[in-house]
Amino acid sequence: MFDIVVNGSRHQVDVVPEMPLLWVLRDELGITSPKYGCGIALCGACTVQVDGEAVRSCQARMADVAGKAITTIEGVGNGKLHPVQEAWIEHQVAQCGYCQTGQMIQAISLLKTHPKPTDEDINEVMSGNLCRCGTYERIRVAIHAAAEKIGGK
């Protein structure tokens, strides 16, 4: 039995210690916003926050995240839309949308350390999050827009 706190709610899960956090969230807790893309940290679709840091949940094992606070896209806005989500809507970023929850979690993490990111900052931090639809240009524009929103508050 492991304890896990997801979006503020405490859960107990009975899984093997090596189970990836991604499968704990999706199959044990029914939180399907983090997506399985590659399973080897090459695509970023499974990105969630662990104690506030963006992490590839396909790589994090249950034993290593027990007791830690996990945040998925459902939990980033405290019941409202996060400025990053608002910007994602305003700029119509998503096409198929499969990678986008991971993209937004990574973008939120980026904006914490780079409140006014340059294009180069965005290229560096977002390069591990792939999008087969090719929405990169709109992701960049939306991140700048979200930075403005957060800075203006």
Binding site: S33, K35, E74, L81, W88, I89, V93, G97, M104
Partner: peptide
């Protein structure tokens, strides 16, 4: 606005794998 953009941005949209 794409009619599914909000569901995609909140993670509510259901893909085959979900």
């Amino acid at each position: 606005e794409r009619l599914d953009i909000r569901a995609k941005v909140t993670g509510e949209i259901v893909f085959g794998i979900d």
